[in-house]
């Protein structure tokens, strides 16, 4: 008898696709119910979107002005209260889920399973450790609620069907702290596809050489309709903003096509892309570790090869 609560991630009134990925992980437990919990200031469009996700039994909403921004200290007590009666509480393993889930687990007095890759049984999961260089099988206590974050790259997004699950407003009697306040969010204003859910990604590394040179990566990405990513080295060097970082401590992604350009392939980067469908590497160093895992490799100067590539398209 499993009942799973999936905590929705959203921004600017839009449901994040990571939520549907967490729902498909929940479905793998074969539970009796999958309910989606939305905490926001205005829940309407988010709730409608969530109600269409296949497999969702019910959408629960908590509309409060305090929920206008995802502050873990504010959200966690509400989620912990709403979690009563559920056997599992799932979050996407995004910066949102990673921030909030452990706070909920601690309030419930239970452990958390981070970055679930597969469900072996209702209380048995696999997850990566050591930057994905080992995969462990973990058993959670069967008598406790399981709080888990779902490694989104391991799960397809559950479909959005013609169904529409019931939407129910929850009123939770929880006192919320005021010690933490949202000031602002500086978003990369990009019309490009979202890095985390894009089918194609073009990434640049240290080999690109400068912020100005990175235009060559953006141009190629735009030409093939891809999102742009980067290695840690490129972010550290200030070529691109932090939200483009792919790897162990950045985004873990699984696009159909991943093009690594001027990226040598440190293990911390490789762990972020190993679920990609096809990996293409372009690097001037034929010995670069990226070629060990690339499906298609091309050795040479990226500033010569990328224009040639665009020509050939």
């Amino acid at each position: 008898m499993s009942k799973i609560l999936v905590v929705a991630e959203h921004l600017d009134g839009k449901l994040n696709s990571s939520t549907a990925r967490a729902v498909s992980a929940a479905a793998a437990v074969k539970p009796d119910n999958i309910d989606v919990l939305i905490l926001a200031d205005s829940v309407d469009t988010i709730a409608t979107d969530a109600s269409k996700i296949e497999g969702v039994s019910k959408v629960l909403t908590v509309a409060r002005s305090e929920n206008s921004h995802p502050l873990a200290a504010v959200l966690a007590p509400q989620i912990a209260k709403a979690a009563a009666g559920y056997s599992h509480v799932f979050f996407p393993s995004t910066t949102f889920g990673k921030d909030v889930a452990p706070r909920v687990a601690a309030l419930l007095g239970v452990a958390q399973v981070s970055d679930v890759m597969t469900m072996e049984a209702a209380h048995t999961f696999t997850r990566p450790i050591y930057a994905g260089n080992a995969i462990i099988t973990v058993e959670a206590h069967p008598d406790h609620a399981v709080v888990a974050t779902i490694r989104t790259a391991s799960w397809p997004a559950a479909g959005s069907g013609s169904q529409s699950a019931t939407i129910e407003a929850l009123s939770l009697d929880v006192a919320l702290p005021t010690h933490t306040r949202f000031i602002k969010l500086r978003q990369g204003n990009s019309d490009r596809p979202d890095l985390q859910s894009a089918g194609k990604v073009v990434s640049g590394g240290r080999g690109v050489g400068s912020k100005e040179n990175f235009d060559i990566i953006y141009k190629l990405a735009d030409k093939i309709g891809a999102a742009v990513g980067a290695s840690r080295a490129a972010v550290d060097a200030g070529y691109v903003p932090n939200e483009l970082q792919v790897g162990q401590t950045g985004k873990i992604i699984a696009p159909e096509l991943y093009m690594a350009i001027g990226i040598s392939g440190a293990i911390q980067h490789l762990t972020g892309i190993k679920d990609a469908g096809t990996i293409v590497a372009i690097n001037k160093d034929a010995e670069a570790p990226i070629f060990e895992i690339a499906d298609l490799g091309l050795v040479g100067d990226l500033f010569k090869l990328i224009p040639e590539l665009e020509q050939a398209l």
Partner: peptide, 18 residues
């Protein structure tokens, strides 16, 4: 609360072509 029952090496990607 959590018991690790098994450790495995990750699935390897096969080396591609140049």
């Amino acid at each position: 609360h959590l018991k690790t029952t098994h450790y495995a090496a990750p699935a390897k990607r096969s080396k591609g072509v140049m």
